[in-house]
Nucleic acid binder design. Structure first.
Lengths: 341, 341
DNA sequence: GTGAAAGCGCTAACAT
DNA sequence: ATGTTAGCGCTTTCAC
């Protein structure tokens, strides 16, 4: 006995029609069992299954999409998959979608509006069932041209009209700053990326709120903005920490900022937390590898992706309730970069 | 003057047929200019372009795919996008494909044969133009069932029949071990993931080759295998380094191994490089953040993805030469974890 | 250069 | 429960 693999190497792909013939049923019936919709008798199912197996039937996704209007595909548009945050979110999303039999189409915007628009156009072409996007900065931008289900992650460009999954950035930042203060550090500075995206803006707000609650003065000399890269953060942090009149603690608003700042502190010959204390956003592996390990605001990143996927799946199943704003909690992971609390 | 955006909100999407009517040409002509194939007069092009613009025509990808057989989509199947290596490779691939107007469909195998097969089946359905894959361990596995262009990255399961883009793992490992030796460390141990995937096997081979070249004895007590996670590496490294009879240097075969080992060394109260020297594979950001910064074998990861994409694009353009095995060089980045050379 | 028409393989009415 | 049939929107001969 051998597998029927010595058939003519798929001169042309097997169609439902052929399976139907072989199974002795109509094309519609074959389609119903192969496409898993509608009714079919046990007998029919079996015959079709056998025929399909024997013929090596493989569904044609394009035909399905064309006929049904659904591609069982979801687009993901992020700044850059290379960024651990997005990579992890992508993973969570892919996992969730897999449940619903959907697949992920990926595109990077590089945080550039033009590239984003271009990607959106490419997506528009593809009958995607839904879209997950980390929208590029929200000022001066045309509304996203997308008709179907859309969920924003990490940040929002339009708080009212669509679903979103974000974390409580403000509370997270506040907690970090409060912790820094409770360890006896002052003044507390902040290193942030440009506050054009909502998540960053909220972290800044959290920082200010914490300061206010503490009765500390907001000193703009101690709030620096760097480009969203480690190198830029390094430069900016170095400058802020160079003089004698420097903050005694720094809250960094992203993993890039944290890495750059840590590097700068070290190159300046300063010690953490004695000379400068440090607390940052994002709990990446390396934060426990350095000395001292860094206190961070951890985001449930996988969960962000997963929830986005579930939300989307709900919509695809017909949920047409009002937009849902999922706000996940952050967690302050205290390590040793702030000293003793 | 206002945009015609107050038209009935796309009761149904605009088709080529409608554009053709509006433009006063046949559907075939309209299709030719919209699809950018075949000939069309300047006049026709213009009319069609105007009509398309005015009507807000958006191509239907499914119809195109069904009619043409090509989806302008490439599948990427990796162990886990969350892994920085794969995330970066994905980025390089996406960049390269973008040139050719292709998009990326993503799937994770979790290094599991069943999941890999499942993903391959899902891919098979979709008329993908090509596939990029980091194949799961190559023992006892059925050949990948994929007819179209395929390129393997990072590792190969079948060295002969398909394209691949890998790095010179063996030379990389050898260089690291040689460096460790030249710094005066001995014995030199190695911490590796299971050698089932070719890249890992080659790194092991490089390690052995270096030892042999050095006239050092291969001592299996100093070669440990951990599961491909940081935690597992930590445990295994800790065990290997616990006793007095331990290696004086360790070569780690992946970023997980490096991180776990570094952690273990620290928790054991040992110092790098005085008590144990360390050199590892993969140049991730954090390796410069820790103290001391770690000497690593750097892979051109973005380039791996990009080359894979270019290779694929070549194939799609008709290149049907013999399989190409692209082997990219690695670079030993000397930092301070091995002491002075 | 352009048009007419035949599919691509499937889903979804609709009828039975 | 099953069969018939009309599309889905595009590409692609094949004439002209």
């Amino acid at each position: 006995m051998r597998e029927p693999s010595d058939m003519p190497r798929q001169a042309r792909r097997v169609t439902i029609k052929q399976v139907a013939e072989q199974a002795g049923v109509s094309q519609a019936t074959a389609a119903r069992v192969l496409g898993e919709y509608g009714h079919a008798s046990e007998a029919a199912r079996e015959q079709v299954a056998i025929a399909a197996e024997r013929l090596g039937y493989v569904a044609n996704h394009a035909a399905r999409t064309l006929a049904s209007g659904s591609s069982r595909t979801v687009g993901l548009l992020v700044g850059d998959v290379e960024n651990p945050f997005f990579a992890t979110a992508a993973r969570g999303l892919a996992d969730a979608l897999e449940q619903g039999g959907h697949t992920l189409l990926l595109a990077n915007s590089d945080e550039d509006v033009d590239r984003e628009e271009q990607a959106m156009r490419a997506f528009a072409t593809r009958q995607l069932d839904g879209l997950v996007i980390s929208p590029v900065a929200h000022t001066d931008r045309a509304p996203l041209s997308w008709a179907g289900p859309l969920v924003q992650i990490d940040r929002v460009v339009d708080d009212l009209s669509v679903d979103s999954v974000v974390v409580d950035n403000r509370a997270g930042a506040e907690a970090a700053v409060l912790h820094l203060a409770s360890c006896g550090h002052a003044p507390i500075g902040m290193l942030s990326e440009p506050a054009e995206i909502s998540s960053t803006a909220e972290r800044l707000a959290g920082y200010r709120a914490a300061l206010a609650g503490l009765g500390m003065e907001f000193d703009e000399r101690f709030v620096a903005v760097a480009a969203p890269t480690q190198d830029s953060a390094y430069e900016v942090a170095k400058e802020m920490l160079a003089g004698p009149d420097r903050p005694r603690a720094i809250f960094t608003a992203s993993n890039f900022m944290t890495a750059g700042t840590f590097h700068a502190i070290r190159d300046l010959g300063l010690r953490v937390p004695d000379d400068v204390a440090l607390a940052g956003f994002d709990d990446l592996d390396w934060t426990t590898l350095v000395d001292p390990p860094i206190t961070v605001v951890a985001q449930p990143v996988i969960e962000i992706g997963r929830r986005a996927g579930e939300l989307l799946l709900d919509r695809l199943r017909g949920d047409d309730g009002p937009p849902r704003q999922v706000v996940l909690p952050t967690e302050l992971v205290v390590r040793r970069s702030c000293g003793e609390g």
